[in-house]
Design a binder for these strands. Sequence first.
RNA 1: GGCCCCGUCGUCCAGCGGCCUAGGACGCCGGCCUUUCAAGCCGGUAACGCCGGUUCGAAUCCGGUCGGGGCUACCA
Length: 587
Amino acid sequence: MDPGEGVRHVLSTRSGHRHGDRPERRAGGHQPGERRSPSRRVDCRHGVRRPHTHRVHHRGDDPAPRRRDPYRHPARRRPDRPRRPCRSRGGTARGAHEPGGGTVTTRLRIAPSPTGLLHIGNARSALFNWLYARHTGGVFIVRIDDTDTARSRPEYEQDALDGFRWLGLDWDEGVGVGGPHGTYRQSDRLDRYRQVAESLLADRKAYWCFCTPEELEERRNQARQEGRPSGYDGRCRTIPSESAAERKAAGEPAVLRLAVPRPGETTFTDVVRGEMRFDHANVDDFVILRSDGSPTYHLASTVDDVDYEITHVARGEDLLSSTPKHILITRAMGAPVPTYAHLPLLFGPDGRKLSKRHGDVSVRAYRDAGILPEAMFNYLALLGWSYGEDVTVFTREEAIARFDLSDVSKNPAVFDPAKLEWMNGVYIRDLSADDFADRSVPFVERAIGRTLTDDEKRVFADVAPLIQERVKNLVEVAPMVTFLFTDEIEYDEKSWRKVLGHETAPGVLAAAIERLEQVDSWDHDTIEAALRGMLDDLEIGARRGLQPIRVAVTGSSVSPPLFESLEALGKERTLRRLRDVAGRLGS
RNA sequence: GGCCCCGUCGUCCAGCGGCCUAGGACGCCGGCCUUUCAAGCCGGUAACGCCGGUUCGAAUCCGGUCGGGGCUACCA
């Protein structure tokens, strides 16, 4: 049973809650009828800020001076644009329009590699791409980067798609939904990559390399020792193409490498990092086709970006130093270079790139742990971006309205599960009682190992509001209500010892049984009145007088409020448990 | 080793030369409330890495330094 499946349908039902700014809460909290616009609670002065100076694009000596400016995408050139009443900031990242007035649709993509469960870092990248696409009214595409045939698995592809859907990131083109570019799966496009590679070879922009791995490693070590760049040294570049072709035809193993122009450099403007400049002395002639004829990531990914007319590439900063390679391929194909935005990496608590060794780093794990998709969405949006001063909790729509790639932070962000949990609690408490109950049932059923009967579901729905304000995630629900759905109570050893072990416990239990037997109308008010009367008679405090009942009935000193719990349990079962425990204490 | 990126509370963000005795959120600590646990409310803790420079004035600009991270594969 997969609890995650049970909660998915509610994704689209949440249209607008709002909270997070305390003044409003104090002033009366939510006002359901009123849809507050983000601009009303966030200061508008940001809108008049000048653009970052480092965003200014000045054309360096790009290695392709003949063409006037064929590589920059029109979508990013807009120097000024109609101002919205309130925008977060200036910046050049947005731009669904070109100066002439024509409209260029932004096209962004996420390209998960199905070699493992969807990683939180990838989910965050997907989220940012999605936000920007939605903000600009553009197109969001999901493609599958499965050129690593050895590690790619269909179930991981499914997991990624499930994860995106769960987060509410819908896509307009791509795997599952189709579009004008085939299957959007790289393993289906091998011919296309080979074709590009061949034309690169024909244009002398790529060449065969016959160096063996051993030779490469030796020379790499050598270069490293001498303090030179350790990339490929270009040895095979001088092999005459005819003889290279002959050797290749004769069956000699070879990889195809891109002939990086030398000397030269590649410059580009990164939306989050500003002006970037890479001397080709540090960009080696990298492999684009493996010896088995398959494309490398650099080739396949870039060809896809070109073919799918991607206008903005927002991805992790770990790809920043590969960007010149991608630009080089793009230019070699004669295509316009997209706008790049390199997002800060997500770190684990140890300050290193978030990875499996940090524990749960898959979206799936958090989903199974009872994290709400809207909470994950909100939390992820905060990693490297902020809605605005003093606002932490916001809706999807509010995020879309405000998001801009140029506002993304440059600093790596530590993923903090504690804050996610807090935020999840906020969203849980904001759910309607029914919604909360519906989403929780699968988790309860998973915990007790069976489905709930309709009667039990009704009982659960009655107590659910009491649980709702006490949990930070949905897996915490089950332990608080299992006492309702089983008569084989497992008593918490510590609770038993501390509470029932106290000398006053037997007397309290006996008195409680006596009182409760008299209760005809089994509702929490009447129960409370009866037990309060008992407290008075015994001249005992609530702590000493009520806790024994709680432990006896629920098995733990931690439970939902007592009187409501007894009501939900029913008179018979309550008394049975009290008598049972009283008997055990007596013997 | 080489190249590149980054440096504000423990953590995530705000800050765009004077509004900063640096703001918010999580966490943590204390208090209130209270039938347990939560929630809620109130209060507190805690940061501009360092050194120079520019400037009347720098967290904000520049340089250096130190520190952290990424890349450096026929992985993506």
